[in-house]
């Protein structure tokens, strides 16, 4: 009941946010168009490179497009839903965060609902186009386990990206320094993991597999769906459970967030 109610309020928050953005329709459409060109350009870059080089190590263009699709859809979802956390540092400075504390709802829920930034969804389009295009080229078998794994992978990826953004926001409870360094991990993570992780040097690959497991939640399930044995030799069962790691990290990050809120309540900074 309480979960259903929370989800309902969350949905209401998002509806209100979308309506507010629709007040500036022309500006919104232009921004959406502009972003579409940027993200489409990034995908076009992959096609251009394959046109020139034919393959990327053992990968063909469809396989890379498939991984690109999963990562970009995940990130688009996370990015759009966590705008509130991006704004959080400013909200602490202006005191607007107090307002959220004065309402009988969890602060994480209210922040997540603060804004659903529609233009950030623009990344979704090339992501979905890449997924569809790749699956026609790859002759994939859409069995129920495979379809479920794709959904799980997107959820796992979105959760992991979201948890990075939540972690970054949580730091704002302790420091007023700009935390742009964290963006390097998030955006660098997108850039990195849209290509198969085995093309990178080992230290770098390990960072995004074990350190910040962005590759883990998208790359390994993608292998299982495409039916390709991992060049790095992970077992198939691992590829199926990998997305759960993303959800796990999100749960941890929300716990850390609560510690941050408690710290805020005692310092009132």
């Amino acid at each position: 009941m309480s979960v259903v109610d929370s989800l309902y309020v969350y949905g209401r928050f998002l509806t209100v946010s979308v309506r507010a953005q629709m007040q500036y329709r022309a500006s919104f459409l232009m921004q959406l168009g502009g972003r579409l060109i940027v993200t489409a350009g990034e995908f076009a870059a992959i096609l251009i490179l394959f046109d020139r080089f034919g393959s990327l190590l053992e990968w063909n263009v469809y396989q890379v497009a498939f991984i690109y699709g999963i990562v970009n859809v995940s990130f688009a979802v996370a990015d759009a839903l966590t705008t509130g956390f991006d704004l959080f540092g400013d909200m602490v400075k202006t005191g607007d965060f107090d307002r959220l504390l004065l309402r009988p709802r969890s602060t994480a829920l209210q922040l997540a609902g603060q804004e659903l930034t529609l233009r950030r969804i623009s990344r979704l389009t090339p992501g979905i186009v890449a997924l569809i295009w790749a699956s026609t080229g790859l002759d994939l078998h859409w069995t129920i386990p495979n379809a479920a794994l794709l959904v799980a992978s997107v959820i796992g990826g979105a959760s992991l990206f979201a948890s990075l953004i939540v972690f970054q926001a949580t730091l704002a409870f302790w420091t007023t320094e700009t935390l742009e360094m964290m963006n390097t991990v998030t955006y660098g993570g997108v850039e990195t993991t849209q290509y198969p992780i085995n093309i990178y040097r080992p230290w770098f690959r390990n960072f995004f597999t074990f350190g910040i497991p962005l590759a883990t939640v998208s790359y390994f399930p993608a292998l299982a769906i495409m039916g390709i044995p991992d060049p790095l030799g992970t077992p198939i069962w691992f590829q199926y459970v990998a997305p759960a790691i993303g959800v796990g990290v999100l749960v941890i990050s929300l716990q850390v967030w609560r510690i941050g809120v408690r710290h805020y309540l005692s310092t009132g900074s």
Binding site: Y8, R12, V16, R19, A20, Q23, D96, R99, P104, R105
Partner: peptide, 26 residues
């Protein structure tokens, strides 16, 4: 709680929409 300096209503939306959302929050 009412702050004179800051509104808790959604800036870009008709007042009634803020009221409806507050109804659901509370």
């Amino acid at each position: 709680v009412v702050f004179g300096q800051r509104t808790q209503l959604w800036w870009d939306l008709p007042v009634i929409e803020s009221f409806d959302l507050l109804r659901d929050i509370y």
